[in-house]
């Protein structure tokens, strides 16, 4: 049984998508802008009306309360929103200095008013906030769009570690070919209204070596 299954999922303009994601896999999702990548993630998180079915551990989205489903299948949008004064208030269990360090952050930034933080800091804190709520699947919409190279690599390392534990998986929209090569177990691309799936040669070659 796969961790996540998409069955005949229809979102404009893409035709019926049937695909599966196994535990501990990273799927990199590619496609030109307007091809429906973001809409696909929104549909998987059940935030966009769609036809077809999404199942997590053989449980259909519609059998769970919407909030329960979205807690398990969590979408992290490219634009991160904050509603309290400081980042810390958004966490159920605020992260430790050690955990923050992995993403080049520190405790002071957690207590700083959000408006004083840079876009890149907010993006990394947004990732921590999502993971803090303990999702099973992470749907990332350009999670490193505002980061420099060093921080991009830190986020990638952090997510590799995260996904390797327990029953977890990531579907990640990225425009960076190097990032796709570094991270992907499988590459999904949306071309001419259809989704195609292939293995990532680079990564599997490396593993063979």
């Amino acid at each position: 049984m796969s961790l996540l299954m998409l069955h005949d999922l229809c979102i404009e303009p893409v035709k019926a998508i049937t695909a599966k994601v196994e535990a501990q896999q990273v799927i990199m999702l590619m496609g030109s802008s307007g091809s429906g990548k973001s809409r696909l993630l929104y549909a998987i998180a059940d935030l966009l009306p769609h036809q077809g079915e999404v199942k997590l551990e053989n449980q259909a989205a519609t059998t769970l309360a919407p909030s329960q489903w979205r807690q398990k299948v969590m979408l992290l949008p490219s634009q991160i929103e904050w509603w309290y004064e400081t980042a810390e208030e958004h966490f159920f269990n605020p992260p430790t200095a050690k955990e923050l360090q992995k993403l080049n952050l520190c405790l002071e930034q957690l207590k700083e008013p959000i408006v004083n933080l840079s876009t890149g800091q907010k993006q990394r804190l947004g990732l921590l906030r999502a993971i803090n709520r303990n999702p099973t699947i992470l749907l990332l919409d350009e999670a490193t769009a505002n980061l420099d190279h060093e921080n991009t690599l830190a986020v990638e390392a952090y997510l590799k570690e995260w996904v390797s534990q327990e029953n977890r998986a990531i579907i990640w929209i990225s425009h960076l070919p190097e990032q796709v090569e570094r991270m992907a177990d499988y590459i999904w691309s949306i071309n001419e209204q259809a989704l195609t799936c292939r293995t990532n040669q680079e990564k599997s070659n490396k593993q063979l070596l």
Partner: peptide, 16 residues
């Protein structure tokens, strides 16, 4: 709208 949607994405129900 985007703020409310962000909160829904984090698994909050409509009242939270």
């Amino acid at each position: 709208r985007t703020l409310i949607e962000s909160r829904l994405m984090l698994g909050e129900d409509i009242w939270q």
